[in-house]
Design a binder for these strands. Structure first.
Lengths: 200, 200
DNA sequence: GGAATAACCGTATGGTCATATGGTTTCGCG
DNA sequence: CGCGAAACCATATGACCATACGGTTATTCC
């Protein structure tokens, strides 16, 4: 059912995710949806949290792979962060779901909390990367990990908005897809210059 | 009526902006709302575009003031960009309206176009600032104006999200309000080092 | 086997909403 | 004055939706 909600919201927006529509998408009755969820709100929240968990799991897996391969921190981040961008149809769908729930979060504290938690996980992971980098001398000692994490997270989130709207708009000669990567690369290189080629 | 829509959306979300609620807020009949707008969609779109115009006017005025006062480009931008942040109750309301319509833009091409136009104005203004800076030697010659504008716009937009959620969360010792300004200041100082103290 | 439990269904209900309709009042102006 | 257009109103209509409810089928477990 969570998958059905996700498909409906991705395709036609939150308003299209009525209980009846979810039942139709699943191929069951309205009653069954009610059997598993006490209310429509609970169903939507569950679907949202599940999607976030899926997303964060993917990122965590990429991090684990990068660490196993003893890649530089910068390379790991450059691999993980664009995972949150709407660069293919699946991720565009996720972006649509995410934005729809972000709007809902404005009026629904429970959804807001879920959205805040996910954002905090991303920031936390970034702060950890910076801290690790400081320990091994890759990152300058006077860099504030939280501040750097907040900047990078904001940059990634902000670029996602533009990427969704016009992924192919030319920006400085490149389509935005490439330009966003270039911007992120430059910013990561600032924090993780890669001078000492330390591994994480 | 546009003001009424804005108040309703800011206070209770897009779904609260029913035609009947707008009429009640204005203090007139449902029929009158219909008299002036062919559909609810048209009403909402008008209200959204009006709010965007108000916002951009404020920014334009700040730019004009800064230019009249012969302030450095960096100072002007540092004054203008936080105007788009939800730092007080009025601007938090604007942020809420903006986010609500952003979600609507996912399913409504007309709203999407309006949102895209406003974003393009901000980026254009930023690109203009960078170009001006290059002409007077303030900005390094190999800086790509569009790329820099895209980065700064994304950073500002991304920080707005966080600022709305937790304006007072401590980030590196400062509350996020201050941290966001610090991040923006640092980033602007990178592009506009202020070495030659040129005016715009 | 049989009873309790979970899975599952179809429909009814009460509410909300956008829009349509058929009006009345106000006002500008020749 | 008078008349046409605008501003303005109250209510009707038809659609849709979340939830409630009373029921049937399948499964599990003693």
């Amino acid at each position: 059912m969570a998958q059905a909600v996700r498909r409906l919201v991705a395709h036609d927006g939150l308003d299209a995710a009525t209980v009846a529509a979810v039942a139709r998408e699943v191929g069951c009755s309205v009653g069954l949806v009610q059997h598993y969820f006490p209310s429509k709100d609970a169903l939507l929240l569950f679907a949202y949290e599940r999607m976030q968990a899926d997303q964060l799991d993917r990122v965590a897996r990429l991090i684990a792979e990068g660490e196993a391969g003893r890649q530089p921190i910068r390379a790991i981040l450059l691999r993980c962060l664009p995972e949150l961008w709407p660069l293919d149809e699946d991720r565009r769908g996720e972006y649509r779901v995410d934005r729809a729930f972000h709007a809902r979060a404005l009026d629904n504290p429970t959804v807001a909390e879920a959205a805040g938690r996910a954002a905090a996980v991303v920031r936390g992971e970034l702060a950890r990367a910076v801290t690790n980098g400081k320990e091994c001398g890759e990152v300058e000692a006077d860099t504030d990990a939280e501040l750097a994490a907040a900047e990078l997270a904001a940059l990634v989130a902000g670029l996602a908005d533009d990427l969704y709207r016009e992924p192919d708009r030319p920006v400085g000669g490149l389509p935005l897809r490439g330009a966003a990567t270039a911007i992120l690369t430059a910013r990561l290189a600032h924090y993780f210059p890669g001078t000492c080629r330390h591994y994480r």
